[in-house]
């Protein structure tokens, strides 16, 4: 189906009742923070994590990947605001993966973790999914999400074959 006509309005105007502000502005995507200061990971850990996350969701012909979406910073932010136990598990899991990567390569270490379905692999993958698909790149460039717009008439399905 083609994209339906979306009309962005900045004001509802006269129809708004008392108590509802007449100005109704939809948020435009704001630029991501220009510079992010690591709060939990060391720069070395972050570098490695960034590499691993890009392997989980890589750039391809369709859209950029986890590196461009700065997913490792998202991970740092979330983990830095998590209980200490979880922080320790992240640090230990990442250290082990780095050690294995030093003996082979990051790609091989990740493949082994994925094959073994280790809890740390699940944690890594979930964090990458959460960070990537809530980023501007993930939402707009990759999934091409079509919602959160001002649509006067919602057409619904107009395909003859579905009626």
């Amino acid at each position: 189906m083609d994209r339906r006509t979306a009309l962005h309005l900045v004001a509802i105007g006269a129809l708004a009742p008392a108590g509802v502000d007449a100005q109704h502005v939809h948020a435009a995507g704001s630029a991501p923070a220009q510079s992010y200061q690591l709060r939990f990971f060391t720069p070395e850990e972050n570098l490695f994590l960034d590499q691993i996350m890009e392997l989980i969701i890589p750039a391809d012909a369709h859209s950029p990947g986890a590196h461009a979406a700065k997913v490792s910073y998202f991970a740092d932010w979330m983990i830095s605001h998590s209980p200490e136990k979880l922080q320790r598990e992240w640090r230990a899991g990442l250290r082990q993966l780095r050690e294995e990567a030093a003996n082979s390569s990051p790609a091989e270490a990740l493949a082994a973790a994925a094959k073994g379905q280790t809890p740390f692999f699940t944690r890594l993958k979930d964090m990458t999914v959460d960070g990537y698909y809530t980023s501007q790149i993930g939402i707009h460039q990759d999934l091409n999400y079509q919602g959160n717009e001002y649509v006067v008439e919602f057409p619904g399905c107009t395909h003859p074959e579905h009626q």
């Binding site: 083609d2 994209r3 091409n144 999400y145 079509q146 919602g147 649509v151 057409p155």
Partner: peptide
């Protein structure tokens, strides 16, 4: 595999 469509609306219809 189709282009995304009808992704907004009023949640359940």
């Amino acid at each position: 595999g189709r282009p995304p469509s009808n992704q907004d609306g009023a949640l359940d219809h």
